[in-house]
């Protein structure tokens, strides 16, 4: 960003992910992509479009409809010295691979007495809001953030979509990258020389002094929009992008709460047993004496995601709800 306007270019989130895959394939011959429809079809979300032609069927591999099978194959390849990128079409289907991820990938290093790392990267789309019904609209990334032995990333910006993959591939242990499907068409500015970014720090995306909005992925942009509205009312909200859901960079949000004394967590997952609950608890543990109001959470309604557009919108966290809740927390006699 400091290089000036002329070195920035506009890309979609989808293009940023594709560039990241392409760069990794070019830089390291051990890297390959596999998953359902990633080759000939170009990916369910068109992320890998054109890569089959560029890299050939050995490195862009279409798989059978068996998450358990191809994730297991990915683990095996990683153990064998490769650097696989496994695409699980959406997080909803990750449940079919849960055993491979949780019982194998996450614990191999431990079970082998420190002998075998699993340098596997799993990419998966997540999130609701696209009218694809209850089985296709979940936000289960918070579940995976529960599991020791894996890292869970959630790129929200095009810069992170572009930069997180390479760093994840360099990590010796399994890394899950969740891309909110609602973001693929989002455009953003990317520096010409954009490349790898860190994957262990949260970022303050907007500074403020009255309340901290903690979010990630698509909710980040809702929070930023809410902060803009609040600002017109004289409420300056600080907005934090978690980026990494496991491990959590708690220092960043605890420091922010120490400044603003109020925190609202915006999380597309369900509230009960959620990532939002974890963050709220960390604030209680680490910044209790800084709090001037109870930590609040804005999560999805605890229902199977409705298909009807208006009901789906009502079930998801939205800008006006963030504004209302933040206003209540900051203003007197809320």
């Amino acid at each position: 960003m400091t290089n000036g306007v002329e070195t920035l270019r506009k890309v979609t989130y989808r293009e940023a992910v594709r560039e990241a895959i392409r760069e990794a394939m070019q830089k390291d011959t051990r890297v390959f992509l596999m998953g359902e429809d990633v080759g000939h079809y170009g990916g369910c979300f068109a992320v890998s479009k054109g890569l089959l032609e560029e890299f050939g069927p050995e490195r862009i591999r279409d798989t059978p409809l068996s998450e358990s099978g191809f994730v297991g194959a990915g683990i095996g390849a990683a153990l064998g010295g490769m650097r696989p990128i496994v695409e699980i079409m959406t997080v909803n289907f990750s449940l079919l691979a849960a055993d491979q991820i949780i019982n194998n990938a996450a614990v191999y290093l431990h079970m082998s007495g420190g002998l075998f790392n699993v340098p596997l990267v799993i990419r998966s789309a997540t999130g609701g809001g696209r009218q694809v019904g209850a089985q296709h609209s979940r936000s289960l990334e918070g579940w995976f953030a529960h599991i020791p032995g894996i890292k869970v990333l959630s790129p929200a910006t095009v810069e992170d979509a572009r930069g997180m993959l390479w760093t994840a591939l360099e990590d010796p242990d399994p890394v899950l990258i969740f891309e909110n499907s609602g973001l693929y068409n989002m455009e953003g500015m990317l520096p010409a020389g954009a490349g790898a970014v860190d994957i262990d720090r949260a970022r303050v995306r907007r500074e403020g002094k009255d309340i901290t909005l903690i979010s990630y992925s698509a909710s980040l942009f809702k929070s930023l929009d809410a902060a803009e509205i609040l600002s017109r009312e004289g409420i300056e909200a600080e907005v934090i992008d978690l980026r990494s859901l496991r491990p959590l960079d708690e220092k960043t949000f605890l420091d922010s709460v120490a400044k603003t004394h109020r925190a609202l967590v915006v999380d597309e997952g369900w509230r009960t047993g959620s990532l939002a609950a974890e963050i709220s608890a960390r604030i209680m543990e680490g910044a209790f004496y800084e709090l001037d109001a109870p930590v609040e959470r804005l999560c999805s309604a605890e229902v199977p995601m409705p298909y009807a557009k208006h009901l789906e919108e009502a079930a998801l966290p939205q800008v006006d709800k963030i504004v209302d809740l933040a206003r209540k927390m900051v203003k007197a006699d809320g």
Partner: peptide
Amino acid sequence: SPYARRLAAERSIDLSVLKGTGPAGAIRA
């Protein structure tokens, strides 16, 4: 609120004379 309590202690302010403006009359910073 915890923060208000800490501030009051630092500034030697008697909380019992304050009128809270938070929810349910809670005293805030």
